[in-house]
Every structure is written in C-alpha cells, then in structure tokens.
C-alpha cells in the first residue's frame, strides 16, 4: 500500500465513524453556538463595531470548538490498543498523521460552513473588502489550527489530564497564526487595509509547521 492509499483508508474510516456517531461535530457545533450567543449577548454590538471585533470573535469561537474535535482525534485510537497496532505495523507514520489532520480539517471546515450564516445573522456582517479572500483565509487558518492541533493532541495523549494539556500546548504556539487569521478577517470585513501580508504570513506558518509535523511525527508516535 502506498502512503496516499493508507491515508485515504484511514481518513475514510474516521469519516465513516464520525458520520455514524456525529460525536465531534455535534459537540463542536453546540459549543461554537454557545460562544456566539454569549458573545453577542455580552457585547451587543452595532454593525460598525461588529465589523471590527467579528474577526476576533469568529476565530476565538472556532479555536475553542476545534479543540473539542482535536481532543477526540487520538483518544479514539487508545481503546483496544489501536494506536499500538499502528505503531507496530509497517505503515508510514506520516500517512496516519495526514489522515488525522485531513479528517480534523474536514470537521472544522464543516463547522465553519455551518456557523458562518449564524455569525452573519447575529452580528449583521457585510464585508467591505474583497470577499473572495475570506475562503482563502478560512482554509489557511483552519489548516494552521488543525495541523498543529493534531500533532499536539498526539503528544498530549501521553500526559496526565490530557484534555487540559492540548490547549495549553496549542495556544501559545498558535499565537502568530491566530493573530494573522483575526487581522486578515478584520481587514477583509472593514476594507480599511490589505489582508495580503497576513495571508502570506498564514501560508508561511502552514508550510513551516506542516513540514515540522511531518518530520517529527514518527518520533512522537514511537516514543516510549
């Protein structure tokens, strides 16, 4: 089996599991919904204000919701020693990593697609800048969260109190990515300045950390 076919097989398995249980997507959706409602309540912004703060709110909601899904990534494989079986099998570790990262990317992307209309309704959003850049920012930003999140989730399953450990590891490292996502989104919504340097920064972040994860994942998976 080649790397890509192994990735596809694992990804299909995860998607099928999720399709049947809908654990991750349901909890993420409800969580993000709560964040949206609470923020909207507590700030009750006008259209002009919401353009300035929405970038931050959207991404904070997605970031917290993504952690819910990321925590489930590997926990599922611990039952019945599935992860040990992966480690003993001759399959390349990176194909497993990529499958998990793609899976999380799909979950978070679905969440974003479902939540965006809600944000538009609650915050009366209308982009004043080039709207076509928004999906680009969303894709790059989601990948930035998910690639490191999947990696750190694999690290945090080895720790005590692993559910708490993941955000503690992920958030500090993600600061530049979160800043870039928020600023790019605000730039597009307000139309006051260009989002391009931020998109470039996000793309750089993605390339750097995807490379880093692929180089080091086998080490982390095999750690005793």
């Amino acid at each position: 089996m080649t790397t890509s076919s192994l990735t596809r097989a694992t990804l299909a398995k995860d998607l099928r599991l999720e399709w049947r249980s809908k654990d991750a997507i349901n909890s993420m959706l409800f969580f993000a919904l709560l964040v949206v409602v609470i923020f909207s309540f507590s700030f009750n912004p006008t259209a002009e204000e919401s353009r300035q703060i929405a970038g931050g709110l959207v991404w904070v909601a997605f970031l917290f919701a993504a952690v819910v899904a990321l925590n489930q990534t590997w926990a599922r494989e611990l039952r019945n020693q599935v992860l040990d079986a992966y480690r003993v099998s001759p399959a390349p570790a990176n194909s497993l990593f990529l499958a998990k990262a793609f899976g999380n990317f799909i979950f978070v992307a679905v969440l974003e697609a479902l939540m965006t209309p809600l944000f538009i309704v609650f915050y009366n959003l209308r982009a004043l800048g080039p709207t076509w850049q928004l999906p680009v920012v969303a894709a790059l930003g989601t990948w930035a969260l998910v690639v490191n999140g999947t990696f750190f989730a694999a690290m945090s399953i080895r720790t005590r109190s692993r559910e708490i450990m993941l955000p503690l590891l992920l958030f500090p490292i993600s600061i530049p990515a979160v800043l870039a996502m928020v600023e790019a989104t605000s730039a597009i919504l307000s139309g006051e300045y260009s989002a391009r340097p931020w998109i470039a920064l996000l793309a750089t972040y993605d390339v750097v950390f995807t490379t880093g994860c692929l180089l080091l994942f086998e080490t982390v998976l095999d750690a005793e």
Binding site: N148, M155, T159, I173, A177, L201, T204, L216, V220, A223
Partner: peptide
C-alpha cells in the same frame, strides 16, 4: 508539558515542543 507527561516520554515530547517553539519565534 514536562510536569504533566509520564516520566519515560517527557524528554522526547519536551524536545519536540522546544523545536516547535523555536520555529514559532520568527513567525
């Protein structure tokens, strides 16, 4: 991370995180 991970794996996990942290600094 060093505090919370189980003893045998701490050094490796920590070293990996340190490399990630260093990658993060220019960004």
């Amino acid at each position: 991370l060093r505090r919370f991970s189980s003893s045998g794996q701490t050094p490796l996990m920590a070293a990996v995180l340190a490399v990630f942290g260093a990658l993060d600094v220019p960004l």
